[in-house]
Amino acid sequence: MKIAKAFGLEDLKLDYSTFKAIGPLVALVFLFILATIINPAFLSAGNLRNVLARTAFIGIIAVGSTFVIVAGGIDLSVGSMAAFISGVMIIAMNSISGYLGFGIQTVLVGMAVSVGVGFLAGSFNGLFVTKGKIEPFIVTLGTMGIFRSLVTYLADGGTLSLDFGIRATYRPVYYQLILGIPVPVIVFALIAIISTIVLKKTSFGRYCLAIGSNYEVAKYSAINVSRIRTMTFIIQGLCVAIATILYVPRLGAASSSTGLMWELEAIAAVIIGGTALKGGYGRIWGTIVGAIILTLIGNILNLTDLVSPYLNGTVQGLIIIGAVMFQRGGNK
């Protein structure tokens, strides 16, 4: 200690807590090395693009979930919400194309619808939690079923397909590369940067953390707890809407199987990233690393036949538990 102090290094703690702080990154690097050993094709530009573009959906949604969870909430409805927004968006674009044609304006209307529905869906969750005073788990469990069944209803139990004319216009939003980087990855990066600033540098971000760490204290510190919590759910809804805007041009379809289990993947990404499930502490970059780790597992399993596909779920589960244990390990 004395030596460290003498060199002015007392702040640089190279002990377990540093390790813990960068835990998710270490896990990510480990997976990268493992994947490269298993199949060198992993490092090809094409594969890395695939992985990152896939991560964008869950990643953007998980960024929203980080706000909700940091403020002590949880949102189980995001997967169903994504499916519902996709469905509404496709119906809106198909019907408006009769008036506006297959051009960019139809796609813009679709995007506006998506953002609008995302805002409303998030507000619905948020207001039932705060004004209705029902636990977030219950509210969003309810809306999870509601959104899922609404998309099934809209699709007549089948698949809603985007008109081929619009699909051609809309396609670049998923497939276009800018400087070799897919559009969804760029959007994902922008959202990550903005969210990091919001969570770390604004009073809203600090209020979120305060509410999550001690609800009562936050309330008596003159923080408008209801408003902040409602806003976290609205941010979540908007994130789902943005993810949907990027998702729809990929395959141009929505059905009742769209976005299945995304809510659990989003929550897993947040927790792997080091955010506390009970709220009060969180970090956006961790969530992003968590989301990449989750996508990587699926990618690696597809690139090898070392593991029987019957056991894919086991490998996934072990890596999730392992990654979280790793960053908390020995922490009594």
């Binding site: 896939r54 199987s257 690139l303």
Partner: peptide, 19 residues
């Protein structure tokens, strides 16, 4: 397994094309 699902079909095939 691609779970009779379009998204999984897309992702698994992408990885097979890489491999």
């Amino acid at each position: 397994y691609a779970h009779w699902n379009r998204d999984d079909g897309y992702e698994v095939m992408q990885d097979y094309l890489t491999r």
